[in-house]
Simulated assay, not measured.
Amino acid sequence: MDEANTVDDAVPVEWRQVPPDGVSPPVVQEHPYLELKLEHPGLEPTETGDRFFPDAVPYELDGTSRVFYWRPAVASSTAEPRDWELACGTTHELVGFDSLPAEGPPLVTEGASGTTVVVDGTIGGDVTTSHVGAYVPPAVSIERHVESAVELMVDGTRHDLSPGQRRRIRLGEQRVEPVGTDGRPKTIAPELVVRFPGRRELHHPAPGATYRLFPAFGLDLEALPNPLSVPTTTGELDDLALAAALGVDLSRRPYPERALWQAFAYTAFDPHADATPELTQLATGQIVLETGE
Rank of each mutant, 00 (worst) to 15 (best):
P101M: 12
P106T: 00
G42W: 10
G63A: 11
L43W: 08
Q29W: 08
E110R: 14
A112I: 15
V118N: 11
P58Y: 10
G104C: 04
F52Y: 09
C88M: 06
C88R: 02
V28L: 12
D120S: 13
Y59K: 12
A56C: 08
P19N: 04
P81M: 05
G114E: 10
G63S: 09
T129N: 14
Y59S: 09
D62N: 14
C88L: 04
E103D: 13
D50M: 13
G42N: 11
F68D: 08
R66L: 15
E93D: 07
P45H: 10
G49N: 11
F53G: 00
P41A: 02
S77C: 00
T129I: 02
G121H: 07
V74A: 08
T116A: 05
I123T: 05
P54W: 03
P19M: 09
G111Q: 07
V27H: 01
Y33S: 01
A56F: 09
P106Q: 06
V28Y: 07
P54T: 03
G63F: 11
H131K: 09
E47M: 11
E85H: 13
P26L: 12
F68I: 01
T64Y: 04
F68Y: 13
S99Q: 15
E85Q: 14
V18I: 15
T116G: 03
P54S: 03
P81D: 03
G111N: 09
G111S: 11
V27Y: 02
F97Q: 04
V119K: 10
Q29C: 10
T129P: 05
R82A: 15
P72I: 01
T48G: 15
R51A: 00
P58Q: 05
L61D: 11
E30W: 00
F68A: 06
T91A: 10
T48Q: 13
G111I: 01
G125W: 06
G96L: 02
P20D: 13
H92W: 06
T122N: 14
A102L: 04
S99Y: 11
G63Q: 07
S99E: 15
G49M: 02
F68M: 04
D126G: 05
F97C: 06
R51V: 09
V28D: 13
T46G: 15
T78I: 01
S113P: 00
L61C: 07
D55L: 09
E39N: 06
V108W: 05
E80G: 04
D21P: 01
G121D: 05
L36I: 04
R51Y: 01
E47G: 08
P81C: 06
A56W: 07
A73V: 01
T46Y: 07
V117I: 12
G114W: 13
F97M: 07
P106C: 00
T109N: 06
T129F: 07
F53I: 01
T116K: 12
L38T: 02
S130E: 07
P32M: 06
P58M: 06
F52L: 14
E30F: 00
